[in-house]
Write a protein that binds this DNA or RNA. Structure first.
Lengths: 245, 245
DNA sequence: CGACGCTTTGACCCGTTTCAACAATGGTGG
DNA sequence: CCACCATTGTTGAAACGGGTCAAAGCGTCG
């Protein structure tokens, strides 16, 4: 039997402490519409007042903010199973934009039934709340990343984070994972220029920590990459997961 | 009659949409212990598993993370009425530390009664959830701040944020507010060195945007400071507040 | 094959860091 | 009340990480 489209959400809610059959059913009964988004398309924009949340089913999304001077900062990447804009459930105005890095498919779930779900099943509410808190923890780590790490470490850290997150949802194969973003986007995520991103990646390659071609990144030496990135997965708040698969 | 110690919390919960008398009473009946914290003292540390939340009654707190190489990044400042570690309600392990920038007094509220409050009064739960989402929005803005703004703008942005937040809780006097942090701390908040913070502040002073002496900052020209900071208060999600007092 | 987007390279430049001192300030104890 | 000491703020000079600009490779796709 084919999976229910909202299965990624169920799996995520199941991850910390398992949910009951009744809770699972309630989640699966949420209304939703699936939509395909093409690479580089915005899904929502700063200033919007969305009435849906967006569950990423497949692909790669990122949040970003722009400055009047044109500078763009990517705030986080989202992998399948994430609900990147769950915060819009309780914040009227969007303070950032969201776009697809690659062709993606998402399920839009209206706010109202989600709120009803939360009130009917407080434990689910707590779990969803927790998800937004983890997003917050990731933003904190990113403040540290752009604020204190040097160029190559920033990039290495993002790679460690992506690998860990993708692994947690079963989307890493061995030591490698798909990460088809441009160096310009990586620059916007790290606060570096494209040129310097390029040179820093070359450094990581030269140090035999990774290879990264055609959107696929392979980690040759996880321990040394972690060390170069000063990566500690605590902030991702994955439970019952060891550091490495 | 003297205010109830948890009054700052009641006021915060009241700010978006007013709460009922019953809800107010339930909040006021929360158990708590008040404690004084001296400047530069840690309240909790990365890796802790706190069993209380901490409501700031008076003073100035900040969250920070450190790197193995010794670098420290301040993640956010908290003003009276804030609950800096509300996220610990649903995240077992603390992924950052919290310290007092100045002598402060805080009320510790145990997690368990807070959780019960949330389940008994879902609207209060939503409001507390919302507070954590605003914290997340602030972290996002800080990623942008350290990632994309130049030195003087970063500092100006923090000043705009602090002024706006303090004003919202009635702790700004006219155009000025207390912000008794050292330039070294400001450096850790902006990802700059002390020396460069010093020079950047001098630039802000030279441009007649602010004065800042003995821990008190005065804003001479809000509009130009905002422009220099590229500050837009949307991300603070203050409701029914105009931009300036 | 040619155009377009992305990566890579080179040369030069500038914002920020580093290092090292020195000046204010404020608190403490004799 | 003053001498002392620890912080914090300020300044200068030199070094460097990362930025800027510009052009050249390289795939891929129409």
């Amino acid at each position: 039997m084919p999976d229910h489209p909202l299965e990624p959400l169920v799996r995520k809610l199941n991850s910390n402490a398992p949910i009951s059959d009744k809770e699972r059913l309630a989640v699966q009964n949420l209304p939703f519409t699936v939509k395909h988004i093409e690479a580089d398309q915005d899904i929502v924009r700063e200033g919007d007042q969305p009435s849906n949340c967006c569950l990423l089913l497949d692909g790669l999304l990122f949040l970003y903010k722009t400055l009047p001077d044109g500078a763009r900062q990517i705030l986080t990447f989202h992998v399948p199973g994430d609900i990147p804009d769950l915060q819009s459930l309780h914040l009227e105005l969007l303070d950032h934009s969201m776009a697809a890095a690659t062709d993606s498919s998402v399920a839009f779930i209206p706010h109202e039934p989600l709120r009803e779900l939360c009130h009917a099943y407080p434990r689910l509410a707590d779990k969803l709340w927790r998800e937004t808190l983890i997003d917050g923890a990731i933003f904190r780590e990113w403040v540290l990343n752009v604020g204190q790490r040097e160029a190559a470490s920033r990039i290495a850290h993002i790679l460690c984070e992506m690998f860990t997150k993708l692994q947690a949802v079963g989307l890493a194969r061995g030591n490698s994972f798909d990460f088809p973003i441009t160096q310009a986007e990586l620059g916007d995520a790290t606060g570096l220029t494209t040129v310097h991103v390029n040179r820093s990646i070359q450094k990581l390659r030269g140090d035999r920590l990774i290879s990264w071609e055609k959107g696929r990144c392979t980690i040759f030496d996880w321990d040394r990459l972690k060390e170069a990135a000063m990566f500690d997965a605590t902030y991702l708040h994955l439970v019952g997961t060891s550091d490495r698969g």
